[in-house]
Design a binder for these strands. Structure first.
Lengths: 114, 114
DNA sequence: CTCCAATATCGTTGATCGTCGATAAGCGAA
DNA sequence: TTCGCTTATCGACGATCAACGATATTGGAG
């Protein structure tokens, strides 16, 4: 068994899955809303987003599946909270990217263009 | 004039677009490959990814459209370089997310469960 | 118990995505 | 010029996504 390559592939897929969870404006909005509202939030999100209740519920499900938010039952409603620690693999990748090795690309000859 | 709300919507969409650019394992792989290879890279990506040349070209186009990479023409081939500064809006959002206000959710009564 | 409010789930429809093969375009070499 | 190599573009197909309305489920109030 190839634990090594499987690990690399798995991590790429995991990071891509996290990015996909953030790849919709409505979900970005939800995250910002939860960040701004320290209190309990339930169906207020539905009103603020302006989409159908079932659609917002689906977005919340996606965010919850990615581990970015968590839902706690509070009577008839559900209280969502941010758990951004789940984004660590994504932020680790991004922070590891360095702008560019300057002239490391394409060798000396390429500079003649200027 | 609601420059404010338009700005917010636009920024959410921009952030979502950046996340979407990172939402595929092959594109994550390409970024890691460019990070690891300081020299010029062309069709080597195609071989390493294991997908069709046209598919890889499409992934490169998406990354370039998002501003995450840049392509410099070097004779018949193209040299790609990382430009991760374009990810700033995304990282700014993520770094602004705080884990959770602890018991700020669902008011005092909710604590009885324990 | 019944009723009401909040949330989740189901089924569908239109749009977008990922992938491929085939083909075109650009550029250096001979 | 023509030849060969590298990259981009063009359909086309299947899969996934986003959105909705309608319906089920859950839990408190009366």
């Amino acid at each position: 068994m190839q634990i090594r390559s499987d690990d690399r592939q798995t991590r790429d897929a995991e990071i891509a899955a996290l990015a996909k969870a953030l790849s919709h404006p409505a979900r970005i909005r939800i995250l910002r809303m939860l960040q701004a509202a320290p209190g309990c939030i339930g169906g207020e999100i539905v009103e603020a987003i302006g989409l159908a209740q079932s659609t917002v519920s689906e977005h919340l499900r996606i965010l919850k599946a990615a581990g970015v938010i968590s839902g706690e039952i509070d009577g008839p409603r559900i209280c969502y909270a941010l758990t951004p620690a789940a984004l660590a693999p994504l932020t680790d990748l991004i922070s590891g990217l360095t702008p560019s090795p300057a002239g490391a690309c394409c060798l000396p000859a390429a500079k003649d263009i200027t």
